[in-house]
């Protein structure tokens, strides 16, 4: 009997202890945010907005240090994560790159070296042209122009064999046109090239081209989403983000191709720290600083944590793997 009582007590303690610990873990020293992009890049801005949301609203009172490890298209960040196993004071900020990069390149890390924490928001993709220099006004004109001279229509984007080029191959696949992809260092650089009339089109997150749209040197043709964007504030030409048709309705049958803004920790993150951060970033997503960041970028507010995020990663990785396979981009061993 006393034996049973002891066991029961032990069980109770065993059950209670983690929940106590779950509630109690709190960072007591500076937390480092490692952004998988150079200063000024999309992921860098994301990390710094989260930083400002956390520190302004005093959600996290220990200092936050943002550092950049942009090398190897951001792979450097996740390789760094591998060397800091179970460290709860280092968080890694990226996009889908965390699980897409290892598909094409031989890298020493894999998804197993990371603990997913959250996808805080999604960036839609838009197809842009310069209406003045190209004479293209809508998706029909774009496809007609591309069919007229196969391989002559130049489409720019950020980096090679990543989201932008993947999206281009999806356009080619679904419409049967032949485009030439030109990689630049960043999405805004590609946007300027379109604005200057050096290339015909580019694919981009809305925030990277909105100023060019206002200036009349770029025009959004369609958004790669299943539904139109929500924002109805007029931006330019009497149009709002909501007035931009989805690519599906305009004639390019590509499914939603949004880019998640993701936060990771290294593998073996203590569960109580994971619980703490999940809660923290859920709060951060509701902070006014983050809300205005979402609005400026015409982003899709969709917060994923825990199992929902894990499921999403699995599906997203699989869909990228399939596209990569079709494009012949998968690395040799697979």
């Amino acid at each position: 009997m006393p034996k049973h009582a002891l066991t029961a007590l032990a069980l109770c303690l065993g059950l209670a202890a983690p929940s106590v610990a779950l509630a109690e873990w709190k960072p007591n020293r500076p937390v480092e945010f490692v952004a998988a992009a150079g200063p000024g890049g999309g992921t860098d801005t994301f990390a710094r907005v989260v930083q400002s949301a956390l520190s302004k609203n005093e959600l996290l009172t220990t200092p936050i240090i943002v550092s950049n490890k942009a090398g190897g298209s951001g792979a450097e960040t996740f390789i760094y994560a591998k060397t800091n196993k179970s460290d709860p004071y280092k968080l890694y900020f990226g996009t889908q790159d965390a699980y897409v990069l290892p598909l094409a390149n031989k890298l020493s890390y894999s998804l197993k070296d990371l603990t997913p924490i959250a996808a805080m928001v999604f960036d839609p993709f838009i197809l842009w042209v310069n209406p003045k220099t190209s004479g293209i006004e809508d998706v029909k004109g774009f496809i007609a122009k591309a069919k007229e001279a196969p391989g002559q229509l130049k489409l720019g984007g950020a980096k090679a064999k990543e989201a932008d080029e993947t999206l281009m191959t999806l356009i080619e696949y679904s419409t049967g046109v032949d485009l030439t992809y030109i990689p630049y260092k960043s999405g805004s650089e590609a946007a300027i090239q379109v604005a200057g009339g050096h290339i015909t089109a580019n694919v981009n997150n809305p925030s990277e081209s909105v100023e060019q749209w206002k200036a009349g040197v770029q025009k959004p043709l369609c958004v790669f989403e299943n539904e139109r964007l929500a924002d109805t504030t007029v931006i330019a030409d009497g149009m709002s983000w909501h007035d931009v048709p989805t690519c599906k309705e305009a004639g390019i049958a590509v499914d939603s191709f949004a880019q998640p803004r993701t936060i990771w920790a290294a593998a073996d993150l203590p569960p109580e720290a994971l619980a703490y951060y999940t809660d923290l970033f859920t709060k951060a997503a509701a902070a006014p600083e983050f809300k205005s960041y979402q609005e400026r970028g015409a982003q899709i507010p969709r917060l994923l944590t825990g199992d929902a995020f894990k499921d999403f990663i699995k599906k997203h990785e699989a869909s990228y793997a399939e596209i990569y396979k079709r494009n012949g981009w998968l690395r040799a061993e697979q």
């Binding site: 000024g40 890049g41 060019q212 206002k214 205005s292 960041y293």
Partner: peptide, 27 residues
Amino acid sequence: LGIPGSATAAVMMGGLMIWGLSPGPML
């Protein structure tokens, strides 16, 4: 243009966006 001419300019541009200003022809 929102095209940083140097690494420092890139960081400042990031700052502009966080403060809610978009660099570009309309600024």
